[in-house]
Computed example of a mutant assay.
Amino acid sequence: MKFLINPECYHKICESCVDRIFSLGPAPCPYPKCGKILRKNKFKQQIFENLFIEKEIDIRRKVGAIYNKTEEDFPNLNEYNQYLESVEDIVFKLSNGIDVDKTEAELNQYEQDHRIEIIEKTMRESQKNADLIKYQDSMERLKQEKLKIQKRMELEDLEFSKLQQQDLLDRMANSSMTSEELIKQQQNQLSKRNSQRKRQLQQINNQLDQQFSQTNPLLRNQSGDEDAVSSTVPFTPFQGDREVNKKYRMLQVPQTIDEIMNIENHTKGSYHDPYVFGLAKNKEYLGAGWRIGNVFEHALDEAFMGLGCNIEVEKSVSV
């Protein structure tokens, strides 16, 4: 059996009885001594187990639709807080049955006296909400487009890494250079390419951000200029992949091939991770330019990220 409630009295009535009693129009509540006139379109399912909470939320929604001013409508914070206190006083009286008739009369009178103002405020808030939804939708599409580009570049880099790995193995078999020299040479090439790819990705992201700011109305000020982006775009302290001063000092880790192949005897007083040590000896990983130091550095970067960051100083840096 499915029960419904009506905000007029909050008495529980089964759905079939609601259809039977109120289908032909408004009718009194069937509960003894209630007498409230109920309408079918006002019945709803109970959300909260505690009916007092259900009632208070409905009252807050009703009062909030009438007393709908925001802080920007007041000359100072003190007057806005007094306004909020008066609203809370109305909600408290209606929720606890204190001077209900008098309070509802005052509420109705306020609504009549400020009807135009209430409607205008509601329309402005509706427009803001609609613009915000459009903005959030655009931000999500922008994010997905960036992820798509990043994923494509990662796949390209992975394919390039496999080709470089095979090339290194071929050169190790045929070249007169030592393995360490070949690996170092390839590592330098990979480092240069990674830097180039990083700049390329950043450039693409900047272009997408610029296009987004030009087409999104929320990123324009009232005069129609488009120089208000820095004040409306969600703030990120590190501005993407901008170089951040490291707050730690790395311990010494094996660098040469001989040290890596005998890594257990070259990490005393340094980092210890048997699993990563095993990966460090893998020639395929070495050939692809992977190094154990990068693992520990990445972990430390994530652990220390944001420590010592002064938000106010970061905000002053131009995007």
Rank of each mutant, 00 (worst) to 15 (best):
Y80M: 09
N81M: 11
Q82S: 12
Q82T: 08
Q82R: 11
Y83T: 04
E85V: 07
S86R: 14
S86Q: 12
V87F: 01
V87Q: 09
E88G: 03
E88N: 15
D89H: 10
I90L: 01
V91K: 03
V91L: 10
V91R: 06
V91Q: 07
F92Q: 12
F92Y: 15
K93S: 10
K93W: 05
K93V: 05
L94S: 01
L94K: 00
L94I: 09
L94V: 07
S95W: 11
N96F: 15
N96M: 10
I98K: 15
I98R: 13
D99Q: 11
V100G: 08
V100A: 11
K102E: 13
K102A: 11
K102Y: 10
K102R: 12
T103H: 02
T103D: 03
A105P: 00
L107R: 02
N108S: 12
N108V: 02
Q109G: 03
Q109E: 07
Q109Y: 00
Q109D: 07
Y110S: 06
Y110P: 04
Y110G: 02
Y110V: 09
E111A: 12
Q112K: 10
D113I: 02
D113N: 11
D113Q: 13
H114T: 06
H114G: 03
H114C: 05
R115G: 00
R115I: 00
R115Y: 01
I116R: 09
E117H: 07
E117I: 07
E117F: 03
